[in-house]
Design a protein around this nucleic acid. Structure first.
Lengths: 244, 244
DNA sequence: CGTGTTATTGACCAACATCAAACTTAGTGG
DNA sequence: CCACTAAGTTTGATGTTGGTCAATAACACG
């Protein structure tokens, strides 16, 4: 799949895209760049002039609290546009980092602005994208504040596998989540040690199998029940859900 | 202040608004409605046809987790547009409720769409508004996952007083936060009992004084230090910050 | 191999939840 | 104006989840 198709595929998970809009998307200029593990793509405080599109690898938004403790705010897969907000918010209020080696495309704000200026549908699509982003944040607030460690990790696994599934990044029921236990802790507000214990429990209960950071979901339904997972907050295009 | 001016005042906290755009905003049709305490303005699962503008009182977005536990996701003051997302996301993924008696205006989606269609600046402004909304969610994720109870409540107080300050809803350094301790718990992921203990500690330390749900911040600087509060994530219009 | 990162384990402890009861406050109707 | 009620606040006792610390084991990579 071409780089531009990756983006189109992603946008199609949330809405239908017309052929002419696809053409406009394919015309976007990409400045390609590679990042090593743990390298930042965008840093808090910066004033980006480009939007960033993930093409390969796993990225995460994060911010530090009290200088020491890192909170991971969201996870991003190929096709994701993790800093659309820089179009309207001059200064980054958080950073974006590569959890694995990442290949990304940078698209000048001007190009994006021109594109959405010329197509009301694409304008709406970009807004919709941002709003779904916010919906996921809301769900994370609810999860972190109300679920216990076991449920929280289960929810994260459900979300990740669901988001990867609609992008065809899953082979069968397995999925690869290349995050260390410490990173999982940053994403769930738990200590590394406790993440480890929860994962062990899940393995023992036959919910998942892991080898390193390769995880295989064995019992999707049970995980969903544990996490009280409801896919609505991801606001997928209805067409995508039918393919379940 | 007129109802429309309330909205304009709010939008001016995040960006400059031209006179012609103000005229367009003043032309928006408002359907006024009152809500009692604890009455929902919008309910999860609904498909709204209007955007909602808070004119008086305090509102909160929330969702239930596991059917029992309520998570408050955000707080909303007069001038706020707490469900702009319904413009692009058909179905509500959370509810909006009145924490105090609320007076609100409902504006048909069609009217908002026409308005932002006719002004690129207003289109950008609405996008900016939504993106700041998301920025606040990110900060809440970071706070809930990394701060302890004392710091978390301090941060909430800082945010609320800051947001009210730029709307001129504060008299001097005091501010009224009409939330029960149970609601504060829902907003911070803490139990009522623990919220109570933290508030008592803050009173004892001379950080705040409260009578019922009227709270007075005595030592803003110390509260900010405790919470590691940095106002950047609210992305205020620079002009507003100068008035500090 | 050696070296650095990640995963695992165990002992211990703190923060916060839960439960239950008493107290305060504000609102209501007689 | 006072009793009555309901909602919210406060208190104490007790329990549990998950954090911290520190050491060891398993891997991955040059």
């Amino acid at each position: 799949m071409s780089d531009h198709d990756r983006l189109i595929k992603r946008l199609e998970t949330i809405a239908d895209v017309t052929e002419s809009d696809k053409a406009a998307l394919r015309a976007l200029p990409f400045r390609l760049k590679r990042f090593e593990e743990n390298q930042d793509l965008v840093v808090q405080g910066e004033k980006p002039t480009d939007c960033c599109l993930i093409l390969e690898g796993l990225a995460a938004r994060y911010k530090f609290v009290a200088e020491v403790r890192r909170a991971i705010l969201s996870l991003h897969f190929p096709g994701d546009l993790p800093d659309l907000q820089s179009l309207q918010l001059e200064r980054m209020d958080h950073s974006l980092t590569a959890l694995t080696p990442v290949r990304a495309a940078f698209i000048p704000h001007s190009a994006v602005r021109t594109m959405i200026h010329n197509s009301a549908k694409l304008n709406d699509l970009i807004i919709r994208y941002s709003l779904i982003d916010a919906s996921i944040f809301r769900q994370w607030i609810a999860n972190i504040s109300q679920l216990n460690a076991y449920e929280r990790i289960a929810h994260l696994l459900c979300e990740v596998s669901e988001r990867m599934r609609v992008l065809n990044l899953l082979d069968a029921k397995s999925f690869q989540l290349p995050m260390t236990q410490s990173e999982l802790g940053d994403a769930t507000g738990l200590s590394t040690v406790h993440v480890n214990r929860v994962l062990q429990r899940m393995r023992k209960e036959g919910l998942i199998v892991s080898k390193g950071d390769i995880h295989l979901i064995l019992d999707r339904e049970r995980l969903r029940a544990i996490a009280d997972f409801n896919v609505d907050y991801l606001h997928f295009n209805a067409r995508v859900l039918d393919e379940t």
